[in-house]
Design a protein around this nucleic acid. Structure first.
Length: 586
DNA sequence: AATGCCGGGGT
DNA sequence: ACCCCGGCATT
């Protein structure tokens, strides 16, 4: 084919000048290289290493692409919850991740074969990674330090605090610094509540909601404060591997494993990989803030504090009064259990980039609000499962969920600057990055009730999810016009003002005719705004004549410019075909 | 005029 | 699906 084209072209010699000299024979490739002494060799073929390597380590952008919230309360969790456990390695992140994800679908399925990975073993021991969050102000330092100490070697290189959650399998009591008085206080508080709940329940189902609301309000301040403290001081006072075997159904076990796996996956995958999508998120960071506040909603009552494990397993405790009906409206968008799982799964599958949100240094955890149960899990699914099985006593039909669980847990955000900081030092910060960072402390409005929160999120979600980078890289590679190997663009770096865009720069824009608001990313300062607006338009009114929406001619260099007519061979296919350039998109 | 790209046509 | 090109819009 090459030959053919060449031949053809050579026949046009007059027009193309030198080309005519090329014998229509084979081996155009070598010839082409020779032709471009000045230009960087367009690494032919799907380049050996470069592809994977180039985009991976490059930008562990610290920044926060706060996509987090975008995902509904539930799903966001999985993706964002950075948290715990870290895998020793990231190698198989891709594969392992997908595997696990798949696993998610069939939670019931038997836990994977014995020696799959290292973390399996660990999970066996600490199936449930629990973090007890205590509302203590003064002890943070101490607590934190210990915390770190816990995760021997396995702790995240940076972000010791949060990362270290992976604490060994050891079961830990809250040996932290907080004073005994605190404990007493807490426990007494708890006791009172304990009595309070049943009573309330008996009172009247109808007033139940109101009651709950009130309670929520009552503790909101307190809770908010706590959260703030948590965020600002990064206070995870203690971690606790809580493994009361008795109360664990095998299902739950599996679930937790899966959950953990998911978290791990997202954790290990997120930071390094594919920066392009991240940036996209950043572009949306504006909305992030809004959404960001959401998850930390704290309808919780201040039942932080540790709890006697034995308590948790007591299904007999009446659930806080709430008729399923009352809140169903809120969660309309998501079908109960499966829905959430799906969401999570899809989140991982398609919104891969999102996990990177954690870079914004906020970690989302899910805290069980059940009285006396301060359980904190890293994923919504996990917490739901927990609530469902432990508190709602729905062991048998664990798959079924009327969404009630949603009301019994809340999201809390933990600040993970430490991680971010570490990362930030690694990569130069671009303006867009800095933009993303502010949302980091949306503290003030961080307290909301779940319901509104859910609504908000759905609203936000839709557009976001639509614009989600989802298929980005896929598109990139799949695109019909994109014939040239990714590597080609060493040149692109040359063209980008910002050195930190590396070869990636051209990659992200896969831009996609789909009308995705891509690439604030690029360093190509030009045109981006323009383009984005354009795309937005598309979003707002997808069904359109399409005619007038001609792509606003890219500003960047195109193959033609870069390589010149003489080297048309080096053009991207699209360019050759007079289509929108796929290589130097802007 | 040069470019970038869409729409459409040929194979 | 791949390839090419007329022709329009933009620079």
């Amino acid at each position: 084919m090459q030959a053919r084209r060449l031949a053809k072209r050579s026949s046009l010699g007059s027009r193309r000048g030198s080309a005519a000299l090329q014998p229509p024979g084979p081996a155009p490739a070598p010839a082409r290289e020779g032709a471009l002494p000045g230009l960087p060799p367009p690494a032919p073929g799907p380049g050996p290493g470069p592809a994977p390597e180039s985009w991976r380590p490059p930008l562990p952008p610290p920044r926060s692409a706060g996509t987090g919230p975008p995902r509904a309360a539930g799903a966001a969790a999985a993706a964002s919850s950075p948290v715990l456990l870290l895998l020793g390695e990231e190698d198989e992140e891709e594969e392992g991740g997908s595997r696990r994800r798949r696993g998610l679908g069939r939670v019931q399925a038997k836990p994977r074969g014995g020696a799959e990975e290292e973390d399996d073993d660990e999970e066996d021991e600490d199936e449930e990674v629990v973090v007890e969050v205590v509302d203590g102000d003064d002890d943070d330092e101490d607590g934190e330090e210990r915390f770190v100490a816990l995760g021997p070697g396995r702790a995240l290189p940076k972000g010791p605090a949060r990362g270290a959650l992976k604490v060994g399998s050891v079961k830990r009591e809250m040996t932290f610094t907080f004073q005994p008085e605190d404990l007493k206080r807490d426990s007494s508080k708890k006791m009172s509540h304990q009595h309070l709940f049943p009573l309330a329940m008996e009172e009247d189902v109808k007033t139940a909601d109101t009651k709950k609301a009130n309670r929520v309000l009552d503790h909101e301040k307190e809770n908010t404060r706590s959260i703030c403290l948590l965020e600002q001081k990064r206070k995870v006072v203690s971690s606790n591997i809580d493994v009361p075997p008795a109360r664990k159904s095998s299902e739950e076990l599996d679930m937790d494993k899966v959950t953990a796996a998911m978290v791990l996956t997202s954790l290990s995958t997120s930071p390094l990989v594919r920066s392009p999508p991240v940036r996209q998120n950043e572009g949306l960071s504006g909305s992030w803030k809004e959404a960001g506040g959401v998850p930390s909603s704290s309808s919780s009552s201040g039942y932080w504090s540790w709890s006697a494990p034995s308590d948790q397993s007591n299904p007999s405790t009446p659930s806080p009064p709430l008729s399923a009906d009352s809140f169903k409206p809120f969660r309309s968008p998501a079908p109960p259990d499966d829905g959430i799982d799906e969401a999570e799964a899809s989140n991982l599958l398609f919104d891969e980039p999102i996990p990177r949100k954690r870079k914004n240094s906020m970690k989302v955890m899910f805290k069980c609000l059940w009285k006396n149960c301060g359980k904190v899990l890293s994923t919504a699914a996990g917490i739901q499962k927990h609530i469902r099985t432990i508190h709602l006593g729905r062991v048998g039909d664990s798959d079924y969920s009327d969404g009630e669980e949603d009301f019994y847990y809340t999201e809390i955000k933990l600040n993970t600057d430490s991680v971010a900081d570490g990362l930030s030092s690694l990569a130069p910060v671009s303006p867009s990055q800095s933009l993303a960072s502010p949302p980091t402390f949306p503290t003030p409005d961080s307290s909301r009730t779940e319901a509104p929160c859910a609504k908000t999120e759905t609203k936000l979600m839709t557009p976001l999810s639509r614009s989600a980078p989802t298929t980005l890289y896929l598109v990139h590679t799949d695109h019909a016009y994109q014939a040239t190997p990714p590597v080609t663009i060493p040149g692109s770096a040359k063209f980008t003002p910002n050195s930190n865009s590396f070869s990636i720069s051209w990659q992200s824009p896969p831009v996609t005719f789909t009308g995705i608001p891509v690439s604030p990313t690029h360093s190509h300062p030009v045109g981006t705004g323009e383009q984005r607006q354009h795309t937005h338009t598309v979003l707002s009114s997808p069904p359109r004549g399409t005619v007038s929406l001609r792509k606003p001619r890219g500003e960047g260099k195109k193959c033609r410019k870069v390589y010149g007519m003489e080297n048309r061979d080096m053009w991207c296919t699209a360019c050759r075909w007079k289509k929108a350039c796929q290589r130097f998109t802007d």
